[in-house]
Amino acid sequence: MLTLTSVDLQAIWLSAKVATTATLVTLPFGFALAWLLAFGRMRGKLLIDGLISLPLVLPPVVIGYLLLLLLGRQGPLGGLLKTLGIQVIFTWKGAVIACAVIGLPLMVRSIRLGMEQIDPYLIHASRTLGAGFFDTLGSLVLPLSIPSLVTGGILCFARSLGEFGATIILAGNIPGVTQTIPLSIYDYTNTPGGEAGALSLCLVSILLSYLVLIINEIIMRRSRRSVRQLS
């Protein structure tokens, strides 16, 4: 029953590539923003928090459209990228950006929750023992944030696998170029006789998502065990 055409395989491969890249690109930003929200003592923290979380509640289509305005040929950033010879819209890079923006709030939330568990006195201790700001970030905050980085990464990856609205607007639905699994399923449902293809990709989608959940659970259990050992 599971029959996959070469276009389907391309969509699966592209989904994996886009989700992985989006997750890896988002991680450093997620870490920095989470640090800012967890430990930063600046004004307008609530504003920044709201701005980062906005993609969580806005329709993805809105995000996609705003990104298109920003990164399109006439857009403020798009023009700059064009002079550098980089095109984002209607390429797989566009899909990555769409997924990254949509996945960022999930990642920031997860890492921030983890960071807020870090005892501020550990950071004080590190500073008074001679470790500078970035030294402390690298040798204390980062290692203690690894479980939450993993969870955040997995959430972002899973969200990216399912991303539809923002991707279709920013990257389009070009088979072999920007057509990820959800877009491909959408195509099948609009084609007479496409039910079998849609169902096959749905199965793949379920399998992939389930795998991600199981991996997440395994990692969470491990980190819980190590936390228990610590306390």
Partner: peptide
């Protein structure tokens, strides 16, 4: 001077050892 450049070390009420 930032804490790391003051050369003043502290032992707190709780040890606050690095758990990792």
């Amino acid at each position: 001077l930032t804490p790391d450049r003051r050369r003043v070390a502290v032992v707190f009420q709780h040890a606050h050892l690095f758990p990792h």
